[in-house]
């Protein structure tokens, strides 16, 4: 488990740099043949309003929409990236956070490689319910790679301060600690890095398993 090389400290690297890198690899990947490309299905789970859709949009389109809109059902976007010199197509599934969908069962999540549990660092409730999302959604937790993403780091002043130090001991078993990080879908902090890292972790894990 783990992906040593791609995970150093929580990078404070400016977002533009990362974006450039991503753009480069994407155009590079597009021109390459499809044969070796791996498909990674990533699902975003978490309470309503924590910013799952925003995270996906920030990662794929580098955009942040200010409108406040709940997600209907689910939606997915794809992005081509280069992970450890392997071309990968990331298929990111954004889900509705309504409680109603917690009990939907595995049908929808079948075939997912990685599950990103998103919470709002300003809301302890959203962090608490991450566990129930994880348990309700996934019947065989060992088939999945779990990653925790704490969103909305940009909101500094009104933060209830859920520090990463406090989060760490709380992290439940089965979550990839190294690739869990704090992000901001609004200004893009660490978003690309978090997704790349998540992809690398999943790939490494798959390699280990196979």
């Amino acid at each position: 488990m783990g992906c040593g090389n791609s995970q150093e400290e929580v990078p404070k690297a400016s977002a533009p740099n990362l974006l450039e890198k991503a753009d480069y690899s994407e155009s590079y990947i597009r021109n390459k043949s499809v044969i070796n490309r791996k498909l990674l299905k990533v699902i975003l789970l978490g309470d309503s309003g924590v910013g799952k859709s925003s995270l996906m949009n920030q990662y794929v389109h580098q955009q942040f929409a200010a409108e406040y809109k709940a997600t209907i059902g689910a939606d997915f976007l794809t992005k081509h990236v280069m992970i450890d010199n392997v071309p990968v197509t990331m298929q990111i599934w954004d889900t509705a956070g309504q409680e109603r969908f917690q009990s939907l069962g595995v049908a929808f999540y079948r075939g997912a490689d990685c599950c990103a549990l998103v919470f709002d660092i300003n809301s302890e409730k959203s962090f608490d319910s991450v566990t129930s999302w994880k348990e309700a959604q996934i019947q065989n937790p060992h088939d999945f790679c779990f990653v925790l993403l704490g969103n909305k780091v940009d909101i500094e002043n009104q933060r209830q301060v859920l520090k990463i130090q406090r989060v760490n001991p709380l992290m439940m078993s089965g979550v990839q600690k190294e690739s869990s990080q704090l992000v901001s879908a609004k200004n893009g902090t660490c978003v690309v890095d978090a997704f790349d890292c998540l992809a690398a972790t999943t790939l490494n894990r798959d390699d280990l398993v196979s």
């Binding site: 059902g73 689910a74 509705a96 309504q98 969908f101 069962g105 595995v106 049908a107 929808f108």
Partner: peptide, 21 residues
């Protein structure tokens, strides 16, 4: 989704519920 759902909604059609509704 809290006020209406079809009768025979089992695991196979939950996909429809979540994507198509």
């Amino acid at each position: 989704p809290t006020l209406m759902w079809a009768k025979n909604q089992d695991a196979s059609s939950s996909h429809e519920l979540i994507t198509g509704n």
